[in-house]
Simulated scan of single mutants.
Amino acid sequence: MKLFNSTRVVGSNYENMALTYLIRQGMKPVARNFNCRGGELDLIMKDKEAFVFIEVKYRKDQYHGHAAEAVTPTKKKRLIKASTVWLLKNNYSLYDTEFRFDVIAIHDEGKHIEWFKNAITQD
Rank of each mutant, 00 (worst) to 15 (best):
M1P: 09
K2V: 03
V9T: 02
V9P: 02
V10T: 06
V10P: 07
G11Y: 09
S12T: 02
S12V: 00
N13S: 15
N13V: 15
Y14F: 15
E15M: 01
M17N: 06
A18C: 08
A18I: 07
A18P: 08
L19A: 02
Y21C: 08
I23M: 06
G26S: 10
M27G: 00
K28N: 14
F34S: 00
F34D: 01
N35K: 03
E40L: 05
E40K: 07
L41V: 00
L41Q: 03
K46W: 10
D47T: 05
D47Q: 13
D47I: 05
K48Q: 15
F51W: 05
F53A: 02
F53P: 03
E55K: 09
V56K: 00
V56G: 01
K60G: 12
D61M: 12
H64P: 01
A67R: 00
A68I: 12
A68E: 15
A70V: 10
V71W: 07
T72N: 08
P73G: 13
P73N: 14
P73T: 11
K75A: 12
R78D: 06
R78K: 07
R78A: 07
L79S: 00
A82L: 09
T84G: 14
V85M: 01
L87S: 03
N90D: 08
N91F: 12
D96C: 11
T97C: 11
T97K: 06
F99K: 02
R100N: 08
R100T: 08
D102N: 05
D102R: 02
V103K: 03
V103W: 02
I104G: 02
I104Q: 02
K111F: 14
I113R: 08
W115N: 07
W115H: 15
K117F: 10
K117T: 12
T121M: 10
T121I: 12
